[in-house]
Design a protein around this nucleic acid. Structure first.
Length: 977
RNA sequence: GCGGACGUGGCGGAGUUGGCAGACGCGCCAGGUUUAGGUCCUGGUACCCGAAAGGGUGUGUGGGUUCGAAUCCCACCGUCCGCACCA
C-alpha cells in the first residue's frame, strides 16, 4: 500500500522523521534557552532591549498512569503563545517542572516496596519524554522537581522564614520575629500578662513568641482521615465530609498540628485580587472562600462569664430571644447546672423531633441538663458530616442556663445546636428568629418567642397572603429584608444607657448606632470575621518535605540555614499508616517516627551542641507549588532561593497586555480551574510573606491567569453498567452499539478505567505531533472544554499535507517555491492573514489563527501558479508557531540556516490591508436585499445612489420614497421605508 | 437555597464598537482520479418554498430598545460549575 504513495508525501512516517530530527536539533542548539540578566544563566546581550515575558503552566504531578490527550492541551497553548511572543522579540521564559511529592508514589511504594523516589523519577523521565515528543519549547535547564533535594532545601528555607516571622497588624505585614522580641525586651510592647520580659522564664518567653509565629503548632480541631492515616486541610475535604483524595471518611478531632496563619492575610488576599488579571469566576471563588463578613462582637453576660457572639446584624439585638452555642463550645460545661430550672418545657430537654417521638413511646426524658448535653454531643459526633448536611431539621438542646441580652437586660435561654459551628465566628450566636431563617425554624420547633424588630413592607405580607401584623405567630417565615425598626428601644436601667433604633430606616444606620452604643457600654464592638481558616500544614506521611524543625523542652526551633536541607531519611517500610477508614478514634503515626537515629539529632542552635528531637510530620503536597515559579528563574542557585536581580527581571512590576503597569508576577499562567482555592490561594499567601520580608519584588505571584478548558470524552456502559472499549462502539441512527448490543453513552472525563483513553503516542503514530498540536488548538478557544474526537484529527492532517504539497513536489522532493511575485489578490490575502493571525495569537485564539492559515493555504492550493517566496515565507513563519517541526523543515528548505523560532514576526504592508473598492450590503428595512461595489472612500451620497440603483432594492422600494437612508461608511446602507 | 458561567447547523465551533449569521474543520451529498475500495482532487451542504432568479424562516423561549439585535435590557426555560446551616 505504502509504496503506491508518492515518495515525498507528508505521511505520519515523514512527519515523525522531521519531528525527531528537529527535536534533536533544538536540544543540541539550546533553541529555547532564555537568558537571565545575572547569575549562571546570564547573557546580558540576550536580555538587552527585549521585554521579558514569563509564560507558565501549572506544573503536573508525574503520574505513573501516563498522559492522555487531554493533559498537554494547556501546555500546547502556552507553547504557541510563547513561540508567538518570541517572534515578536520578547525574551520568553517557558519551562516545565514536576510537582512530584504526593500520595500516589507513596501508596505505590507501600504496595510494592519500591522507593517513592525511584518511581517518581521514572515517572518524571517518562513524562519528559512524552512532552518532548510534542515539541514543546521549554528551557530544559530550568526544569525542577519539588522532590529534588536541591529544590526542597529551599522549600524548607522558606518555611523557616515563615516560622521566624510574625504578623504585625499595625503594619498589616509580616516582620521578622526578632523585631517582636526586641520590642518585648525593650518594653515597647507589653507582655500578655504585663510582667516585664526580664521577669519571664525561658519557657514563658518561648510560649509568647511561638504564639505570634506565622506558622505555629497547636492543639486544635482538625480533619482526621483514618483511611489515609493523615490529617487534611479544609480545602482537601469535600462537602460530603470525605477526603478529596481517595474519598475516605473524615472526622473532626482535636489534635496537635502545624498551622499557617493565612487568616492574617485574609484582607490582603481579598483586596489584592483587584491587582490581578484573572477570570472573574476565580476571583469570586476566592472571595467566597475567604468569606469576609462585617458585623459586631456582642457579649451576653452569663453565670460563667461573658458569652461572646459574632453577628452581621447587631441592629437586630432587640430580637435576640435565645442563644445557641456550638456543641463543642468550651463554655458549655461551666454553664450547665446540676438540675433543670423550674418550668423548663419538656421540648427544650429533647434534641429533636425523633426524641419527642421516642419519649411519646415511653423513652426517658434526660433528668439533668448535663445528661441532655452529653447525649446530644454523643449523637452529633456519631453523625457524619453528610448526615448532618442531609438532615436539615434543626436539632439542639437547652443547657439549663440563661444569659443577659445586653441591650434590654432580658434573660434569654442558652441552647447548644449543631447548626452553630465552632469553627466560625466565636462558635456562639445570638438567635434572632424574627430576622433569620435558621433561628426562626429552631424557635418554631422549640416554642421559643419570636419578637418582631422590623416592620416588613406591604409587599412582603401580600407575597405571603397574610394581613399586615407584627404578631409573628402569623408569619410563615422570618423577615430578612430592610424595614423600619419597631420595639427596638430601651430606657436607661441597671447601669445601661438608653438606646433607640426605632427611628432608623436603614440597616446601615441602625448598625452604626448600635455598634457605638455597644462600645460605649463595653458590651461589644464592630468586628470582621472570615470564613477562611488557618491552613493546616502538617501531614503524617513519608513522601513529603521534612519540617526544618527540632524540639527542645520548651517547644519548636528552626534548623539553621547551614544545616539545611533536612533530608528525608531512608526507611525500610513505608507501610500503611492508614487505619480502618471508619475508626474515628485511631491516631496518626508519622512514618518518620520509626527512624530513631534520624529523629534524634545533635545540633548547635547557638547555645552549644545539644540533642534535639526532630519534627516528624512532613509538609503537604502544596508546599512545593507555593513557590516553584520562582525557582525556574534561577534553578541552580545554591546561595539563595532566587537571585534578587533575576527575580526582579522576570517577576517584578511590568506592563500588561493593554500596556498598563502591573504590580508584577508571571505574565501568563495557564491551568485548570480545580486549583481556584487551593494552590492559587496558598501560593499567593507564601508570595506575600516573601514580599513582606523583602525576598521578592511584587505582592502577587501570578499577574494574569487563564483557565484552560478540559478535553472531555464519551464513555460507554453496557446493560450491566460496565464500561466497554469506547473506540469499538459504533453509532447507528443516534443509537450506540458495542459487539451488537446497545450501550449507554456518558460524557465526561477521559481515563483508563472509563475505557475511553486516547494517548498522545497513538496520535504521533497515526498523524504526527504537528497534526496533533493543530487539532488540539483548532477545536475552540483555550478556555472552553470540548469533546475529543479522533475521527476529526484527519482534517488537520489534510491541511498539512496540502500545504506540504504546495511547497514540496511529492514525487521528486524538490522545493516548488518560485521567486516571481505573487498575484495582487494573493498578496492582499497574505497581508490580511498575517495581521489576523497576529491579533488572534495575541488574544490566545489559536483556533481562529489556524482557520486563517487554512484559508490562505486553500487559496494557494486553488491557484494554478506555484507558490511565490513572498507568500511562502510568511506562511511558514506563521505555521511554525503552531506546528513547529514542519515549520522548521520548510523554513530550512526555503534556504534559511537559522531556526524559524527566532525569525521576527512577518511585517505587514498596511497598504495591502485596504482595498480600493469594497462590496457592501444594502438593506431595506433592515433586511439585506442586494450588494453594491463602491470605492472605499465613496461618500454617503454616492453610496445612497448606488444602493437605490440595485435592481432588487428598487423592486422592494416599489416606487416608494425612502423615509430615511442610513449609511455606515465601510459597513452597509440601510433604506428605511 | 446562594453565587457564577453558558445556550448559534448533524458535530466541534466562527462572528472588534449592535451593521452581510454560520469562518475553519469533521460529517454528509455529488462529480473526478482509480479495475474496485481507500487515499487524493473538485463542487455543494442552516431550514422551508422554488427549475432558477428570488422569497420566507432562523442564534434556548417570550417580550423590549433600535433604521438594524446572536450581540444591549427584562422575564422565563435549560445545561454546567462553585459554595452550602458561615450567624
Amino acid at each position: 500500500m505504502a509504496d503506491e504513495l508518492p515518495p515525498f508525501r507528508y505521511t505520519p512516517q515523514l512527519a515523525a522523521e522531521i519531528e525527531h530530527r528537529w527535536q534533536d536539533r533544538w536540544e543540541a542548539d539550546g533553541t529555547y534557552e532564555a537568558p537571565n540578566p545575572a547569575g549562571p544563566l546570564a547573557d546580558p546581550e540576550g536580555v538587552a532591549g527585549r521585554p521579558r515575558r514569563y509564560v507558565l503552566d501549572m506544573f503536573p504531578y508525574p503520574s505513573g498512569a501516563g498522559l492522555h490527550v487531554g493533559h498537554p492541551f494547556g501546555f500546547i497553548s502556552t507553547d504557541v503563545y510563547a513561540r508567538y511572543r518570541r517572534t515578536k522579540g520578547d525574551n520568553v521564559l517557558h519551562a516545565m517542572g514536576y510537582d512530584s511529592f504526593g500520595l500516589p508514589a507513596e501508596q505505590f511504594a507501600v504496595r510494592t516496596g519500591a522507593h517513592p523516589r525511584t518511581t517518581t523519577e521514572a515517572n518524571i523521565a517518562t513524562m519528559r519524554r512524552q512532552l518532548r515528543r510534542i515539541g514543546l519549547g521549554h528551557d530544559a535547564r530550568r526544569s525542577v522537581a519539588t522532590t529534588d533535594v536541591a529544590f526542597y532545601r529551599w522549600t524548607q528555607w522558606i518555611f523557616t522564614q515563615i516560622f521566624e516571622s510574625w504578623f504585625d497588624p499595625e503594619a498589616n505585614a509580616a516582620r521578622p520575629i526578632t523585631e517582636l522580641v526586641a520590642s518585648l525586651e525593650s518594653g515597647d510592647r507589653p507582655t500578655p500578662d504585663g510582667r516585664a520580659w526580664g521577669e519571664l522564664s525561658e519557657g514563658e518567653r518561648r510560649a509568647i513568641i511561638d504564639d505570634h509565629r506565622l506558622v505555629y503548632s497547636a492543639e486544635m480541631p482538625v480533619n482526621w482521615c483514618p483511611g489515609l492515616g493523615t490529617v487534611l486541610a479544609n480545602e482537601e475535604v469535600t462537602a460530603e465530609g470525605r477526603s478529596d483524595i481517595g474519598n475516605y471518611p473524615v472526622f473532626r478531632r482535636n489534635m496537635r498540628q502545624w498551622v499557617m496563619r493565612i487568616t492574617s492575610y485574609a484582607d490582603r488576599l481579598l483586596d489584592d485580587l483587584d491587582l490581578l488579571d484573572w477570570p472573574e469566576p476565580i476571583k469570586v471563588m476566592q472571595r467566597n472562600w475567604i468569606g469576609r463578613s462585617t458585623g459586631a462582637r456582642v457579649r451576653f453576660a452569663g453565670e460563667a462569664g461573658d458569652i461572646e457572639v459574632f453577628t452581621t446584624r447587631p441592629d437586630t439585638l432587640f430580637g435576640a430571644t435565645f442563644m445557641v452555642l456550638a456543641p463543642e463550645h468550651p463554655m458549655v460545661d461551666a454553664l450547665v447546672p446540676g438540675a433543670w430550672p423550674e418550668g423548663t418545657p419538656q421540648r427544650w430537654k429533647l434534641a429533636s423531633q425523633d426524641d419527642v417521638a421516642a419519649v411519646a413511646g415511653g423513652a426517658a426524658v434526660p433528668a439533668t441538663p448535663g445528661e441532655a448535653v452529653d447525649a446530644y454531643r454523643a449523637a452529633a459526633a456519631a453523625k457524619s458530616d453528610r448526615e448532618r448536611q442531609e438532615d436539615r431539621q434543626k436539632s439542639g438542646v437547652f443547657i439549663g442556663a440563661t444569659a443577659t441580652n445586653p441591650v434590654n437586660g432580658r434573660q434569654v435561654p442558652v441552647f447548644i445546636a449543631d447548626y452553630v459551628l465552632m469553627g466560625y465566628g466565636t462558635g456562639a450566636i445570638m438567635a434572632v428568629p424574627a430576622g433569620d431563617e435558621r433561628d426562626f425554624d429552631f424557635a418554631r420547633d422549640y416554642g421559643l418567642p419570636i419578637t418582631a424588630i422590623q416592620q416588613p413592607p406591604a409587599e412582603w405580607y401580600e407575597a405571603h397572603g397574610i394581613e399586615p401584623t407584627l404578631d409573628t405567630t402569623a408569619w410563615p417565615e422570618a423577615f430578612v429584608g430592610e424595614g423600619d425598626y419597631v420595639g427596638s428601644a430601651a430606657d436607661e436601667a441597671d447601669g445601661r444607657s438608653a438606646i433607640d433604633l426605632n427611628g432608623q430606616r436603614t440597616i446601615a444606620g441602625a448598625v452604626e448606632l448600635i455598634n457605638a452604643w455597644l462600645e460605649s457600654q463595653g458590651r461589644g464592638e464592630a468586628a470582621i470575621t472570615y470564613r477562611l481558616r488557618d491552613w493546616l500544614f502538617s501531614r503524617q506521611r513519608y513522601w513529603g518535605e521534612p519540617f526544618p524543625i527540632v524540639w527542645d523542652e520548651h517547644g519548636p526551633r528552626s534548623v539553621p540555614d547551614a544545616d539545611l536541607p533536612v533530608e528525608l531519611p531512608e526507611v525500610d517500610d513505608y507501610s500503611p499508616q492508614a487505619h480502618d477508614p471508619d475508626d474515628a478514634d485511631s491516631n496518626p503515626v508519622p512514618p518518620l517516627g520509626r527512624v530513631e537515629d534520624w529523629a534524634e539529632v545533635e545540633l548547635d542552635l547557638g547555645d552549644g551542641p545539644r540533642t534535639y528531637r526532630r519534627e516528624l510530620n512532613v509538609m503537604p503536597q502544596w508546599a512545593g507549588s507555593c513557590w516553584y515559579e520562582l525557582r525556574y528563574l534561577d534553578p541552580t542557585n545554591e546561595d539563595r532561593f532566587v537571585d534578587p536581580d533575576v527575580e526582579r527581571y522576570w517577576m517584578g512590576p511590568g506592563v500588561d497586555r493593554n500596556g498598563r503597569e502591573t504590580a508584577g508576577g508571571v505574565d501568563l499562567y495557564v491551568g485548570g480551574v480545580e486549583h481556584a482555592v487551593l494552590h492559587l490561594l496558598y501560593a499567593r499567601f507564601w508570595h506575600k510573606v516573601l514580599f513582606d520580608l523583602g525576598h521578592v519584588s511584587g505582592p502577587e505571584p501570578f499577574h494574569r491567569l487563564v483557565n484552560q478548558g478540559y478535553i472531555q470524552a464519551y464513555a460507554f456502559t453496557d446493560a450491566r453498567g460496565q464500561y466497554v472499549e469506547a473506540d469499538q462502539v459504533t453509532e447507528v441512527d443516534g443509537q450506540y452499539f458495542f459487539d451488537g448490543q446497545p450501550v449507554n453513552r456518558e460524557y465526561g472525563k477521559m481515563g483508563k478505567s472509563l475505557k475511553n483513553m486516547v494517548t498522545p503516542d497513538e496520535m504521533y503514530e497515526a498523524f504526527g505531533a504537528d497534526t496533533f498540536r493543530l487539532y488540539e488548538m483548532s477545536g475552540g478557544p483555550l478556555e472552553a472544554s470540548r469533546p475529543w474526537s479522533t475521527r476529526d484529527v484527519v482534517g488537520m492532517q489534510r491541511f498539512l499535507q496540502r500545504l506540504w504539497r504546495n511547497f514540496v513536489d511529492e514525487d521528486t522532493g524538490e522545493l516548488v517555491v518560485v521567486d516571481e511575485p505573487a498575484a495582487d489578490e494573493t498578496r492582499r490575502l497574505v497581508a490580511r492573514t498575517v495581521a489576523g493571525v497576529d491579533a488572534d495569537l495575541d488574544s490566545l485564539q489559536a483556533n481562529t489563527a489556524i482557520a486563517k492559515l487554512i484559508e490562505l493555504n486553500n487559496h494557494v492550493t486553488k491557484s494554478d501558479a506555484p507558490v511565490s517566496r513572498e507568500v511562502a515565507e510568511p506562511m511558514v513563519q506563521l505555521l511554525a508557531i503552531v506546528a513547529p517541526h514542519i515549520g522548521e523543515e520548510l523554513w530550512a528548505r526555503l534556504g534559511h540556516d537559522s531556526s524559524v523560532v527566532w525569525a521576527p514576526f512577518p511585517a505587514v504592508d498596511e497598504a495591502l490591508l485596504t482595498d480600493d473598492t469594497i462590496e457592501l450590503p444594502v438593506q431595506v428595512n433592515g433586511k439585506v436585499r442586494g450588494h453594491i461595489t463602491v470605492a472605499a472612500d465613496a461618500d454617503q451620497a454616492a453610496m445612497t445612489a448606488a444602493a437605490l440603483d440595485v435592481e432588487n432594492v428598487a423592486a422592494h422600494l416599489d416606487g416608494a420614497e425612502p423615509r430615511k437612508v442610513i449609511v455606515v461608511p465601510g459597513r452597509m446602507v440601510n433604506i428605511v421605508l
